[in-house]
Design a protein around this nucleic acid. Structure first.
Lengths: 117, 117
DNA sequence: TAAGTATATTCGAAATTTCGAATATACTGT
DNA sequence: ACAGTATATTCGAAATTTCGAATATACTTA
């Protein structure tokens, strides 16, 4: 009984285990977004975005709705937003303890800062 | 800035993306457990358990403490328990909508039931 | 029906993950 | 120092994931 449940849990986590898919899920927090808007805003290749959306679909993290020429995606359950929020707290704490990552983030900030925000 | 953060998040999710590692984290919910107790209770090969613990260590999900001959593991942050709890709710809802998985779980339950619980 | 637009799928190749088997390391007691 | 115990690491091989390139599908509009 626990086994299938743990496998199911592992699969959801696996669906969230790629930076691009995290970005997609975060973008869907506010609501429905079309596939095109998604890959444009995230600067992804169309095919690549579609592949990642396929993973999220397969694991039932997102749901899609067709309207004319476009496909609109949204999170299947808002509970995922709660998970993400709790994770955010977790990350903040970890970040404070993880100087290496902080440095990395500062560098990125410095670079994008130079380019003029 | 968002990139390193998302990479970090993805890595935590990746650490949780295997049934065995979910089982380990769940076992650590109550507190510190030795490596030996872990793999005995979960019915794992010693080397395999150690490999999974290495993944959890690398991603800083767990922390370990050496005492004599043994190594005791614990969750680095209790916030992870909250994440798991929210996930549990999520799974319960998904489960209700996912008859295939429910069937799978029922079969497992039936099999272990036959063996006499 | 033909051309255009939006999205998905297929196809390798490269990278990563997972596993068991074997081996290594680090303690403990004699 | 030696044997025993607990845990970690290394080594391939098999499985899975990821990517860009190419192609397919589906809808729309002329």
């Amino acid at each position: 009984m626990q086994n299938a449940l743990r496998k199911f849990k592992a699969e959801i986590f696996q669906a969230l285990s790629h930076p691009t898919r995290i970005a997609i899920v975060e973008m869907l927090r506010e609501g429905e977004v079309s596939a095109g808007t998604l890959y444009e805003n995230l600067g992804l290749e169309q095919a690549n975005a579609s592949q990642h959306l396929a993973v999220l679909r397969a694991k039932q993290v997102v749901v899609n709705r067709k309207e004319g020429n476009q496909v609109y995606y949204s999170l299947r359950s808002l509970l995922l937003v709660d998970v993400l929020d709790t994770m955010r707290q977790y990350f903040e704490i970890q970040l404070a303890e993880n100087l290496g990552l902080l440095d990395e983030i500062r560098q990125e900030a410095a670079i994008s800062g130079e380019e003029g925000s």
